[in-house]
Amino acid sequence: MNRLISFHDLQGLVFGVLMTSLGVVFLKAVGLVTGQTAGLALLLSYLLPFGFGPVFFAVSIPFMFLAWLKRGTDFTIKTLCAVAGISFVVPMLAAHIVIESIPPLLAAILAGACSGVGLIALFRHNASAGGLGILALIIERKTGFKTGWFQLCFDACVFLVASLVLEPMQLLYSLVGAVVLNLIIAWNFTIDQTRNSD
C-alpha cells in the first residue's frame, strides 16, 4: 500500500543518506572504492572528468524502472529521494570535511560501517540507495537469499574491474570495507524488517 512519506520515514531516509554519504567521503579521501553502483560510480569518478554525485545519479536512474515495476510507487519515490540525496550530500560533505591524514585500512572500516548502517536505515524505511540494492531487495523478497550476501557476490565483479585501476593495497583495503559493509547488512537486516506490506 502506497503512503505519503511520514516523519518517521523522513528521519530514517535523512539518517540513511547522511551515513551512506559519509562512508563514500571516507573512501574518496584515500582513493578507495566499494561495491555495487556506488563502487562503479566511484571508479568512474576517478577515471572521468565528473564528480561522484552526477555519476552516481546517472548510474542509478536505469534501476528506477525496475523499482517501480517490482516494488511500487512508494518504494520508488523514497529510493529516488535517497539517490538524489546521496548525489547531493557526498560532494557537500567532501567540501566541508577535510581529512588530511587517515590510514587507508581505518578509512575502509569506517566507510563500511557508516554505509552499512546507512543502508539498513534506508531498507527499514522501504527504500534503497538505488542500483543493485533494488535488485538485491527484490531477490531476497522472492527467494530468501540475503541482501548482504547477494551484494557481496556482485561486489566481487566490481573489484575484478577495479583491479585494473587500483594498486594492490588499495584494492585490498577497498575489499575490507566492502566486506564490513555487507556483513553489517547480512547480520543486522532481514527483509521482514521493512515497513513494506506487499
Results as ranks from 00 to 15, higher is better:
85 G>A: 06
170 Q>H: 13
71 R>S: 12
44 L>Q: 02
145 F>I: 13
83 V>W: 08
61 I>R: 07
71 R>Y: 01
185 I>H: 05
39 G>M: 06
142 K>R: 15
66 L>R: 01
86 I>G: 11
17 V>S: 03
30 V>M: 04
2 N>G: 10
37 T>D: 04
52 F>K: 07
66 L>K: 00
25 V>Y: 08
34 T>H: 06
20 T>D: 00
181 L>V: 01
102 I>F: 03
168 P>K: 06
194 T>W: 03
189 F>Y: 12
159 F>P: 01
119 L>N: 07
137 L>E: 12
191 I>T: 08
87 S>R: 08
192 D>L: 07
81 C>I: 15
47 L>P: 04
174 S>I: 02
37 T>M: 15
155 D>R: 03
5 I>P: 04
180 V>C: 08
21 S>V: 05
4 L>R: 13
23 G>P: 09
175 L>E: 00
61 I>H: 09
85 G>N: 08
126 N>I: 00
68 W>R: 14
155 D>W: 08
30 V>E: 11
101 S>I: 02
113 A>W: 09
12 G>R: 05
149 W>R: 13
95 A>C: 00
180 V>F: 08
33 V>R: 05
138 I>R: 09
99 I>Q: 07
50 F>S: 11
189 F>S: 03
59 V>R: 02
131 G>F: 07
43 L>K: 04
19 M>V: 05
20 T>L: 12
120 I>P: 11
11 Q>D: 00
118 G>Y: 05
193 Q>Y: 01
189 F>E: 03
35 G>H: 09
102 I>W: 04
66 L>P: 02
45 S>W: 09
59 V>Q: 00
27 L>Q: 09
144 G>I: 08
84 A>V: 14
37 T>A: 12
29 A>I: 02
161 V>L: 14
82 A>S: 15
1 M>T: 10
142 K>E: 14
68 W>N: 09
162 A>I: 04
72 G>D: 12
115 S>E: 11
30 V>W: 00
106 L>Q: 07
100 E>F: 05
3 R>E: 14
157 C>Q: 01
151 Q>I: 15
58 A>R: 02
31 G>P: 11
111 A>W: 08
25 V>K: 08
79 T>D: 04
22 L>F: 10
45 S>M: 09
148 G>N: 11
142 K>S: 11
150 F>H: 04
106 L>F: 12
185 I>S: 06
13 L>A: 01
77 I>M: 11
23 G>S: 10
10 L>Y: 00
21 S>L: 09
102 I>C: 11
87 S>C: 07
170 Q>S: 13
74 D>N: 12
157 C>E: 03
61 I>F: 12
37 T>L: 14
166 L>Y: 06
87 S>D: 09
62 P>G: 10
23 G>W: 05
172 L>T: 10
141 R>E: 15
114 C>D: 05
26 F>Y: 12
